[in-house]
Computed example of a mutant assay.
Amino acid sequence: MISDRALLQKHSSFNIGDGVYYSLRKNIITLNLKPGEPLNIKTISEKLNVSRTPVRDALIKLAKEGLVDVVPQKGTSVSKIDLKRVEEERFLRESLELRAIEMFMGIKKESDIVRLQSILDMQKECVINNDLIALQEYDDEFHKVFFTTTEKNTCWEIIQSMSGHYRRIRLISLWERPIITKVIDEHKKILDSIVKGDVQEAISLFKDHSSRIIVEEKELMQKYPEYFRLQSEDNFLIKDFLSMM
């Protein structure tokens, strides 16, 4: 169910099409719209109180990002999480962030360390309040510091725009309490290495932090199979596409 109509009014700089797109994208990324959930243009336009055209345009844009599946004779739905895409998105993020951390270590200021500690404290507060959406947002804020300090904001925007599958599996992973504990602990260790000024340790810890999801994927897929795309589904979509040619 779409819960973000207010987003259309909140950002006055958005046109209607932008508002519909960002509303749908947010609902998909935060799992308010579940992987595999059908999407009906008429229903969405009524919930957001807009015409069908901007909804249709938004769905086309989201389909290009791999967040929506449009299958002829089958309908439109939120894409299931594709582990191949998760790995590519993780690779993109790790590649850019490793370089950002290396640069960050050479120019960091005390205010940056204070900022990271503040974010870590807020993450702990989110755990107490069981606010997983906010926890993930602060997780992103923690990593964003490396890019803002090094003035690599465009790199961060690319990561955010190209990480829909990776962000969703990360959020699902936070449904598991032991994983939440690991996230907080790993962030603390990364921060400790930054305070010490140990570049190699910081990079090593980040690599471990980034690759953790690879170990967790199998368990998450077994526990929530309905949210993940199987190889057989990929073959079906290919056959359906070829039948149109």
Rank of each mutant, 00 (worst) to 15 (best):
G19Y: 04
N235Y: 15
I28K: 05
P38W: 13
T148M: 05
L31A: 06
S161L: 01
T149K: 07
E216D: 08
N235A: 08
S12R: 11
D121M: 03
E141M: 12
S118V: 03
I16L: 12
K10S: 06
I180H: 01
W156H: 04
M162I: 00
P225T: 14
Y22A: 02
G197H: 06
S243L: 11
E97W: 02
M1W: 09
N32T: 14
K218C: 11
K84W: 01
Y21A: 05
V145H: 07
T43A: 10
L39C: 15
K26G: 00
T148I: 15
E110Q: 06
I2W: 06
K188W: 08
H11K: 06
K239G: 04
N235D: 11
L7N: 01
E157Y: 02
T53D: 09
I190D: 04
K34Q: 10
R229Q: 11
S23P: 05
I190R: 04
P72V: 04
L39V: 10
S12P: 07
E110S: 11
V50E: 10
H209G: 07
S95V: 02
V20N: 11
V71P: 12
D139T: 13
S163I: 00
K196G: 08
Q200L: 09
E217I: 09
E233M: 08
G36V: 14
G66V: 00
N15A: 09
L39Y: 14
